[in-house]
């Protein structure tokens, strides 16, 4: 789990289950803040956690349930 202690959303974290990620790139293109990218193995990676606004679009779009935005509040 990558905690997101940002000013936008201090109490959320991104829970990525790499085992389920199939590298389709949908979350990367849907993220309005460019937080995500695919790594060299073609799996999702959280590049800029500080930019995340916790909008949940990546979670809603991921066909493989590999990414979750967990709001602690």
């Amino acid at each position: 789990m990558t905690p997101l202690q940002t000013e936008h959303n201090p109490k959320a974290s991104l829970d990525v289950n790499i085992k389920w990620c199939k590298g389709c790139n949908l979350c990367v293109t849907v993220c309005p803040k460019g937080v995500l990218s695919l790594d060299d193995l073609g799996k999702v990676s959280v590049d800029k956690p500080e930019e995340c606004i916790g909008c949940g679009l990546c979670e809603e779009t991921c066909p493989d349930y590999a990414i979750r935005v967990v709001k602690d509040a």
């Binding site: 199939k22 590298g23 389709c24 790139n25 949908l26 809603e60 779009t61 991921c62 066909p63 493989d64 349930y65």
Partner: peptide, 9 residues
């Protein structure tokens, strides 16, 4: 399902 398949959504 294949990578990116809409069925999962």
């Amino acid at each position: 399902w294949c990578p990116g398949c809409g069925n999962g959504i």
